[in-house]
Amino acid sequence: MTPESVPRIRPGARVSYDQVRESAVVLFPEGVLVLNETAAAVVDLCDGRATIGDITRRLADDFSGVEPRDVVELVERLVARGVVVLDG
């Protein structure tokens, strides 16, 4: 993964809001991820257009204390779970 990589939600996975848990969630085959506020913001930007660099800058603007490596680690975890794929 590089700053130019473009993450997007894998086909078959879906971002939703769970009113019971009052959290954003990602639903995918045989799995559920409950997202905290930062993770939800990152997932929201995994739109197939924004690069990792773009997402890192946007998160730094909106959330204090979010480091670039936090964003990279989160996207790596999402890729490992098969929820996000990378282009480029």
């Binding site: 939703s16 769970d18 019971v20 848990r21 969630v25 639903l27 045989e30 799995g31 559920v32």
Partner: peptide
């Protein structure tokens, strides 16, 4: 089930 929290 949904009201209880089921998502899958």
């Amino acid at each position: 089930a949904r009201a209880l929290g089921v998502l899958q």
